[in-house]
């Protein structure tokens, strides 16, 4: 079927089998290989992208469900120079093998926006209060993104630093 995906600000008209996941559409049809296929079952977060600003697993959605939607992949983040978050990942060694990194960064971008808009997480004590940026809070908010090298200390520090800079 014919759909239009807006990816990183650019419109792409695609003729896709309805079974094609958004992840495969990005990787195979648009050749945007920054978004990784870790488990293809929505459990590892390596394929995290932003859908109209909200983070989702690209493997758990079909491309045809997103006709007209705005999608941001890692290739669309820092394209005009590294963002503070990306710089912080480098500074704090927020990766080893790097395979989860695009997903971690997309997820952290989505998380920052969710925080800004006051979306709660279940470790937020008072659900109506502004969530604080504790390590537990970040851990919960990043719980969908696995890193087998276990660079979690670096990832959390990078996120904390970049959020601090934004505040």
């Amino acid at each position: 079927m014919n759909i239009t995906l807006r990816v990183n600000g650019e419109s792409h008209d695609l003729d896709l089998d309805p079974r094609v996941s958004l992840l495969d559409a990005l990787r195979h049809h648009l050749h945007l290989t920054g978004t990784k296929k870790g488990c293809d079952h929505g459990q590892c977060g390596a394929c995290t992208v932003l859908l109209n600003g909200r983070r989702i697993n690209a493997c758990l959605t079909l491309a045809c469900m997103h006709d007209g939607d705005d999608i941001t992949t890692i290739e669309g983040i820092g394209a005009d120079g590294l963002t503070p978050l990306q710089q912080a990942f480098i500074e704090h060694d927020g990766f080893q093998c790097g395979y989860c990194t695009p997903g971690q960064i997309c997820s952290a971008v989505g998380m920052a926006e969710e925080l800004r808009q006051g979306w709660p997480s279940h470790v937020t004590d008072d659900l109506t209060a502004d969530p604080e940026l504790t390590r537990d809070e970040i851990a919960e908010r990043m719980s969908g993104n696995l890193c087998r090298c276990s660079c979690y200390p670096g990832i959390v520090n990078a996120i904390r630093q970049s959020l601090g800079e934004q505040a």
Binding site: L32, T33, G34, T35, T73, I74, E75, I77, G78, L82, Q86, F89, I90, F95, G98, T101, P102, I105
Partner: peptide
């Protein structure tokens, strides 16, 4: 490859 990793 730090720069490559954070930019995908």
């Amino acid at each position: 490859a730090a720069l490559l990793h954070v930019t995908g």
